[in-house]
Computed example of a mutant assay.
Amino acid sequence: MTEHRAQVEELLAGYRRSRDQLAAVHRELSSVTASASDADGLITATVGPRGTLTNLVIADSAYRRYRPAELAEQIVRVTGAATVRALARAGEVLAPALPSETDPQALLLGTADLEAREIAPPQRKPQVDEDSYEDQNWIRERAR
């Protein structure tokens, strides 16, 4: 019985180490942030680990420089750039906890090991309406 008990204790210790590592990775992932700014530094977006906008700083001069649509476009652009940085950092944090063949970026994006063709929306086949007379010719040729 003591050998069996030692194996159980060893398994439990391994489980606890794995849980501790997972908790540490989770804490580090939740603290990931990234920022990006436009070329002039008038707009700065900061995002969290999943690309969620957490802070947006717009200089007063940005309102004079950009029209509303241009300002919105710049905000979207810098937020996207910050998201790319945050996902890269999150991938670096996650990589050591994953099996070596796992792509952390793909996992974070929700695609895991799926190929593009596997996640593409299915192409719809055109439905044939059996009651449709659209392609029928109703004008009969005269008999010659």
Rank of each mutant, 00 (worst) to 15 (best):
V32Q: 01
G110K: 02
W138V: 13
P96R: 09
R64A: 03
N137P: 05
A6Q: 09
S61W: 05
E73Q: 14
Q105V: 13
R16G: 08
S31E: 11
A97I: 05
R117N: 05
T111S: 08
R19I: 09
L71G: 01
R124W: 03
E115G: 14
E101M: 08
L87C: 03
Y66V: 06
Q21R: 13
D131S: 15
L98S: 09
V84E: 15
V32C: 01
A59N: 12
E9R: 15
G14T: 10
R140A: 10
T52A: 12
A81F: 05
E9S: 15
D131W: 12
I43T: 03
E115L: 10
E134K: 05
G51K: 14
H26T: 15
A112L: 12
E9K: 15
R144P: 12
A88W: 01
A34L: 10
L56D: 03
L98H: 06
E10R: 15
L94Y: 02
R19Q: 14
Q136L: 10
Q21E: 10
E28G: 02
V76H: 02
Q21D: 13
Y133D: 07
A45T: 09
Y66K: 07
A143F: 04
Y66H: 08
R140P: 04
T52H: 09
Q123W: 00
A69H: 05
I119C: 03
P126A: 07
L114K: 06
D60C: 04
A39M: 08
D129R: 15
T102C: 07
A112S: 13
A143Q: 03
G48R: 02
D103N: 12
S31T: 11
L114E: 03
V8W: 07
L11G: 06
R144C: 06
L11A: 14
R17N: 08
S132H: 04
Q136H: 02
S61F: 08
L11E: 13
V76R: 04
L108Q: 04
S132F: 02
L22V: 14
S100M: 06
L94P: 04
S37W: 00
T79W: 03
L56V: 05
S132W: 02
T2A: 09
A13R: 11
N55K: 11
I43M: 06
G91S: 08
S100T: 11
N55R: 13
E115R: 14
L29N: 12
A13E: 09
L114C: 04
T83Y: 04
P49H: 11
E115H: 11
S18G: 11
S37Q: 06
I139R: 07
Y15E: 10
V78P: 01
A97V: 06
E134T: 07
A6V: 09
A62Q: 07
A82L: 14
D38T: 03
V128K: 04
E70K: 07
E3C: 10
V128H: 06
G80A: 13
D113A: 15
V78A: 07
S30D: 14
Q123R: 11
G110Y: 03
T83E: 11
G91W: 00
L56H: 06
